[in-house]
Design a protein around this nucleic acid. Sequence first.
DNA 1: CTTGCGAATCGTACTAAGTACGTCTAGCGT
DNA 2: ACGCTAGACGTACTTAGTACGATTCGCAAG
Lengths: 224, 224
Amino acid sequence: MSDTRQDVRKPRLSRERILDAAMGLADRDGIEALTIRALADELGTKPMTIYHHIDGKEALLDGMVDAVFSEMAKPPVELEWRDALRVRCRSAREVLGRHPWSVPLLESRHHPGPELLAHHESVLVTLDRAGMPLPLVAHAYAVLDSFVYGFAMQEANLAVQRGDEDAELAGEIAAAFDPGAYPMMTRFAMEHAMRPDFNFGDSFDVGLDLLLDGLARAVDRERA
Amino acid sequence: MSDTRQDVRKPRLSRERILDAAMGLADRDGIEALTIRALADELGTKPMTIYHHIDGKEALLDGMVDAVFSEMAKPPVELEWRDALRVRCRSAREVLGRHPWSVPLLESRHHPGPELLAHHESVLVTLDRAGMPLPLVAHAYAVLDSFVYGFAMQEANLAVQRGDEDAELAGEIAAAFDPGAYPMMTRFAMEHAMRPDFNFGDSFDVGLDLLLDGLARAVDRERA
DNA sequence: CTTGCGAATCGTACTAAGTACGTCTAGCGT
DNA sequence: ACGCTAGACGTACTTAGTACGATTCGCAAG
C-alpha cells in the first residue's frame, strides 16, 4: 500500500528514470525521435517537468553519453595488457553498437562525466603497466580509440540502412550505378559483400589485432 | 557590362553557390549555425529561394558530404599501394579536419553521391592491385576507414574545445578532478599531454603505419 | 520598344521543437 | 489543522524547416 502510494507519488521522476527512458527511446526510435515532448509522453508526464531534474537537452545528452561509458567494461586488471585491452575494446564496440546514436554524440559533448573520466583512467593505467613510455601511451590510446569509434560509426551506419528499407535503398544505389561505371565496386559487392556469409563486423577483430600486435612490437623496440 | 549584368542577374543562385556558401558557413560558425535562414542571409537572399535549387535540408547535407569526398585525394595509381593509401588517408584526414562538421554527417547520410562512389572505387582498386583477396580487401578497407574516421572525429572534438574557451573548459575539467582521483590521467596530462610540444595529430601517422605494416604482412602470408 | 512566358524569387504562414515564466498542488513538518 | 516548498503543469514565446501561392525579373519574339 505505502509502496503503491510512494510509487505513484513521491519519486514520480528522477534523473535516472529520465536518462533510462531517454536511452530506451533513442535505442528504439533513433536519436532524432528523442524530443523532450516524446520523452515526457514516454514517462507519462509533461515536458516542463523534465526540466526540474535535468538542466536542458544538452545536459540530457551529456548524461546519456556518460551512461554509455558506464556500460563499457574497463580493461580487467588481472589480464595481461593485450588481453585486457581486447576485452575493453570489444565491450566498447558492443555497447556503441547497442546505442548507435551515441557515436556521433561522443564527438560533440565537451562535458566529460565521471564515468568517462574513470574509464579513461583505467585504460591509461593499463597502457602504463604494459611498459609504454608516455609518448607511446598517447599514441596507443589515440589509435585504439580512433579505430573503435570509427568502426562503431560505420557499423551504426550499416545498421540504419539495414533497418530503413533494404530493398528500396539497394535499388536506389544500384540505380546510381552506370552499368559498369564502378567495376571493382560491383565485383566486390557481387563476389563478396552481398554474399550471405559476409559480415562487416568480422573486420573488427582483424583491425584490433593489427593494432595490438603493432603496439606490442613497439613496446619491444622500446625495451631494446 | 554584360558580364556585370549577368553576374548580378542571371545566375544569382545555383546549387554550387549554395553548397559553397553552406560549407563556408559550417566551417566558420559550426554545423549547428547552418540554418536555411542563415544560409539565405549569407547568400543575400531569402529562405524559400534555396528550395528552388535544393530539395530540402537533407539534400543539402548530402551534397555537402559528397563535396567533402570530392576534396579528398584518391590513391595515386603511380605509387606502390602502401604509399598510395598513405597519400589518400592523409588527405582524407586533412580534409575532414578542414570540415569538422562533416565527420558525424558521414554516418547519417544514406544517399551516396557520385564523388563518394568514385572515391570508394579508387580505394578498392588500390587494395586489389596490392594482391589482396576479396576478404582481405574488405578487412583492409573497413579497418583503414574506421581509423581515419575515428581519428578525424577525435581531432574535431579537440578543435572545438580549443576554440570554445580553453581556459574555462580546462578549469571546469580540473574542477571535476577530486585531488588525485585520477592519478594516471593527471600524470599523463602534466608530464605529456599539456606540454607545448605535444600534438595529438602526431598519432595519426603512427596508427596508419601500424595498420599498413600489418596489412602488408597479411598480404605476404597470403602469398606463402 | 513592347509584350508575354517561364524561371527564379519572395511573403506568409503552418508545424515541430526547446524552454522561460508563473501558477497550482500534494504532502511534509510544526 | 495549516501553511510551506518541491515538484508538476499550462501557457506562450522563439527558432527552424518548409508548403503554397503571388510576384518579379530576364530574355526572346513581335
